[in-house]
Design a binder for these strands. Structure first.
Lengths: 362, 362
DNA sequence: TTGAAAGCGCTAACAC
DNA sequence: GTGTTAGCGCTTTCAA
């Protein structure tokens, strides 16, 4: 691999001139610049990003850690973020924490050692991930996305779970359903917790009690399927199931069918995320669309503004963006007159983000 | 951030001793080693992977470039590879080429500039990706996985598409289907091409002609759905659709339902990959399971063995691993007696990989 | 505007 | 077994 010195020799100038000509960091005689460019091309010179990073302390790379890339929600977020980062000439270094807090910590450390300029993380566990996230946030700009840990550790960007779940519950109630049950992952992660809380709050607004304890497992298809079995087996009648995400809801659809229950006639089902498969399930899934693009945009904005907010006045912030309701056939049609006024007026557009608000963590 | 010199000062030894003690590269007096360890801990020392990489030319990082992370096949492969790489203490730097050859080339260059020790790529296009892949393979060990470019450029690891499609076609034929049609992505990528070829070959083995030209679009849900429309609208009767992957097949199920066709009674459907949603669709999808674990294993083996094979005698190799048939309800039950002998005897176990064979490229 | 020289943090000869 | 020295490839003072 040719180095900058090889180019310098070939062009008959000094290494510094090559550096300046190639990076444009300072003015260089146009004629020399041309000679340098030609020499670089003829030698097939490519700059060494490692040497540059060592010297400048900037790697033009940001790291991302997701709980599980096989959960289709995260690929959507990753793609949005990569598109956005591309515009900034920044590379994304993506890691999977494999649902394991120890792995998550290892990944974070590896990213820091590689001198990434910033980190975007969706932490596994509100409690267990906190020490590592906090420690890393002291060393490098860090944004939490979707999920977050407890305590005021860093900026956070995510969907407004309260609004999303609220709209879903309102829709079910407007459709005549009164016996609602919540199925999600264990509330050790903040998404699950926020949505569970939002579910209770939404029911309370309608003066309803849940039709049974929340069923809490994991964010995957199998849990949704198994939870359907549990619901069918329990004596408690249920006419609506609010699921913590689409993957669970899709498993739920299958499980209910296997249990001989029809959707939406006997039991309505809702999801969260709006992954591609939500549109083609049978029946198609009513859900709430995560604002991936807006989330990615916001992450980059906060990251470039440099930092996790701990030093700015007011400390870390949370940005929550309203998700968009997608009504499909897994929920009953709304009774006439019932939906005259939207439950969250003016919040059902993806473009609208709620104003930046202090994050109320935990 | 403390450096090795800070630790050296704290421990009262030289920087080299710290380096040796921490890395274990050479023997160090146990007492000093202990002092170093203590000093490092008290200062919160973390080694600088960038400096190390510059010095040693090894980054303990391998890069991966996938066509589209939102295609659920790739997350499965990524997770398998990360698990495997973790055992080697190697970090995975994952990039998405966003279905764009220009982006793909940029990603490859960025990886090389970052001094990755190797690259795993699933190239977008047999032709258009070839120049970039070839150029990169000259600079760094590179393995192609799943898809590959034309020409003998590097080692390749993938599923045995011929065997997989063959088993699927045999199953349909054994189930009494004779009017089979192929729906996939455009054959500009090698997976699509191999599977299309395998489909024709399998039909020929049975003395059958396809029930219409292959329908070629993109590897996504919407194309499957749209292709179903096309099939329904065309006069040509079809009693079995072999899809290029699961995502298309899942869209196909939906599209056929919308067109009023029943699966499998009127039309049988098969997929390829065995993503999680294949098991819970309605009806559950008959498909072929990609041997992700074995593919990851093989990639790492070839990568560690260092190189893209261009210099070894015999040149680049291709390793194709037999996928595993997963029979579900989207295909008709097999007629009695018809499946007495398996069409590809002894190949229906994931563990068995076909022997390394010369890759027959293009 | 250009070149010489120093140094980012680390490891690997080379001496002792 | 340990310290000294040099240098990975680059950028950035500092002089000229």
């Amino acid at each position: 691999m040719p180095t900058i010195h090889d180019v310098a020799r070939e062009a008959g100038v000094s290494a510094s001139t090559v550096s300046r000509a190639l990076s444009g960091s300072r003015p260089v005689n146009p004629e020399l610049a041309e000679r340098v460019a030609r020499a670089a091309r003829s030698l097939g010179y490519r700059h060494n990003a490692v040497a540059r990073a060592l010297r400048t302390n900037r790697s033009h790379t940001i790291g991302m850690v997701v709980p599980q890339i096989s959960n289709p929600f995260f690929p959507m977020l990753v793609e949005a973020l990569e598109r956005r980062l591309q515009q900034e000439g920044v590379e994304l270094l993506l890691c999977d924490s494999a649902q394991d807090v120890a792995v998550e910590e290892r990944r974070l450390r590896a990213l820091v050692e590689r001198q990434v300029d910033g980190i975007v993380i969706s932490p596994l566990d509100t409690e267990a991930s906190a020490p590592a996230v906090r420690a890393i946030a002291e060393r490098v700009p860090l944004i939490q996305v979707d999920r977050r840990v407890g305590g005021a550790v860093s900026d956070w960007v995510g969907a407004d779970d309260t609004a999303g779940i609220g709209e879903l519950v309102d829709l079910l109630v407007a459709g005549g359903r009164r016996r609602l049950r919540f199925v999600s992952s264990a509330v050790t992660n903040s998404s699950a917790l926020d949505r569970a809380t939002a579910f209770d709050a939404a029911l309370a607004r309608h003066g309803l009690a849940p039709a049974g304890d929340p069923l809490l497992g994991t964010f995957d298809v199998n849990w949704g399927r198994r939870a359907a079995e549990l619901i069918a087996a329990s004596g408690t009648p249920v006419d609506g199931v609010v699921c913590g995400n689409d993957v669970i809801a899709l498993g739920m659809l299958r499980g209910l069918r296997e249990a001989g229950l029809t959707v939406p006639d006997q039991v309505a089902v809702t999801g969260f995320d709006d992954i591609a498969f939500a549109e083609i399930s049978d029946p198609p899934l009513t859900t709430v669309r995560q604002p991936w693009e807006a989330m990615a945009e916001e992450c980059v904005r906060l990251l470039l503004r440099g930092g996790n907010g701990t030093e700015r006045d007011g400390g870390p912030r949370g940005v929550s963006i309203a998700p968009e309701l997608r009504i499909r056939e897994s929920t009953p049609p709304v009774l006439p007159g019932q939906r005259s006024q939207p439950p969250f007026p003016g919040r059902d557009r993806e473009e609208q983000s709620s104003p930046v608000r202090d994050k109320e963590q935990r």
